[in-house]
Design a protein around this nucleic acid. Structure first.
Lengths: 257, 257
DNA sequence: ACAATAGTGTCTGTCAGACAATATTGC
DNA sequence: GCAATATTGTCTGACAGACACTATTGT
């Protein structure tokens, strides 16, 4: 009876056509804040942005594309995506999530290449250095609206569209909003983050629902100081606002109950 | 300036290690009904089952595994998965959905093989022929509980576990229950299907919530005959029950509203 | 009559949605 | 005082959750 390695050697001698690569592409989202021009303290304008790179070589030379790179045999796709993310942004240990694979024949002129798409959520402070060298760079943040209107390389337009749908859905059904916020935040900030990702979101009694509705009360909690006093912030307003943090509770949703 | 094909030819001469295949594996779920032994009409027992095949050759010869097969350069992964699904079950045009990729190095002794996992939901009537030749077959339905306790080939245990989590989540947040039900069904049947997939689901006032709660009323509707009379069924009960069908409305859930 | 499922009555406390009103405080 | 945001008051109709109760009909 033959050993495994014999069989493997035997197997690999087959002449099936095999893929020419398995890259991971990453849709890196961030929310940028720009102060409003008012005489009083006010909430900043927040905008959902996505990081694109300008391609240097064939194919699609000069066009903007999602950052990505070929994965290696010795790593998982997630490792590959994380590596790429760190190369582009300099940060690691960031929320990153797989969402789809793209395999339409001919999608990549280099050959049979199935791309694996991740999205990552990065706090804007981590991208501060990037934003300094802004105009002439080959790595830039674009507003999502703008990016959706561009002629991106490969099928990256479709990938971006899918990623956007993902993040919008997850923004409303999970607590990923925390990825764009500091540990302690005000209700106003949270509301803005949700609206930056899902512009159609509107909830008149937001503060009331999230703080005093029994069924939703669990997802955030008041931040208390060491003496049990409630910590507040007046960073964005004259009147100080209560600070909250996300709890560890995982919301469960159902259309049937 | 060189043409694209020149560049492609030039590019493909690179000697990067490339994957040895990109298979699609499919977790095929169905819900089987077995009549209860009662003297009166009664609802059947429903059980969530998954289709497994017994491997014929190296590697993992003799072990049970998820059905799957290598995709080709000329098809998308979805096409490949659909083809495989039809080969195993004889049915097509069935709900099939991508949910993850598996790329841990060494997961497949045949080489560097990234597997793409789909789940499919098949109405039990389509698998009726399979169930005839039951015991000695190399293709069989297992209850999910049983399958989760087996030593499956490759990392198929993890894939199955992920698929189960997916389908449970989607059962409660989307209308995939329709895939396991006839066009017109009773509330009792719907309740059973949900419970077959999510055993912990329990909703005392189920009929009331789903039929008369304003916010949920849209997802199913009464089935009416040609004269506007309400159609009922007494297949499973002495007292006839109103028939319902799913509407086309897509439920939107949010933890913030 | 009875088993098995289908569906309604009723009650209490909570929530949703709308909008007005008040609170706070740097400028 | 004013602007800008934060937070509470108040009201009505709808819903949630619990449980008891009635309805239907083949066997």
């Amino acid at each position: 009876m033959s050993t495994n390695s014999d069989e493997a050697a035997n197997y690999s001698s087959s002449k099936y056509r095999t893929p020419d690569g398995a890259p991971a592409d990453i849709v890196i989202f961030t929310i940028t804040s720009t102060p409003r021009r008012t005489t009083k303290k006010s909430l900043p304008n927040r905008k959902l942005e996505v990081l694109l790179i300008q391609r240097k070589g064939w194919p699609f030379e000069g066009q903007w594309a999602l950052p990505g790179g070929f994965s290696k045999e010795t790593e998982t796709l997630l490792d590959s995506a994380k590596r790429e993310l760190e190369e582009e942004t300099g940060v690691k240990d960031i929320h990153i999530e797989y969402f789809n694979a793209y395999s339409t024949p001919g999608r990549d002129p280099r050959g049979w290449i199935i791309s694996h798409a991740y999205f990552a959520l990065v706090h804007e402070q981590y991208l501060a250095s990037r934003r300094a060298d802004d105009d002439a760079a080959d790595v830039r943040l674009f507003s999502v609206d703008e990016a959706m209107g561009m002629d991106l390389a490969f099928d990256h337009h479709a990938i971006l569209a899918d990623a956007l749908q993902q993040i919008q859905s997850k923004m409303l059904t999970t607590t990923i909003a925390r990825q764009f916020l500091p540990e302690a935040f005000t209700i106003g900030e949270l509301y803005q983050v949700i609206q930056a990702v899902v512009p159609s979101f509107e909830e008149r009694n937001f503060i009331r629902k999230i703080t005093s509705t029994q069924s939703r009360k669990g997802i955030i909690e008041e931040v208390l100081g060491r003496n049990g006093e409630r910590l507040q912030s007046n960073q964005y307003s004259q009147r100080a606002a209560q600070l909250y943090r996300f709890t560890d509770s995982v919301p469960r949703l159902s259309i049937y109950s």
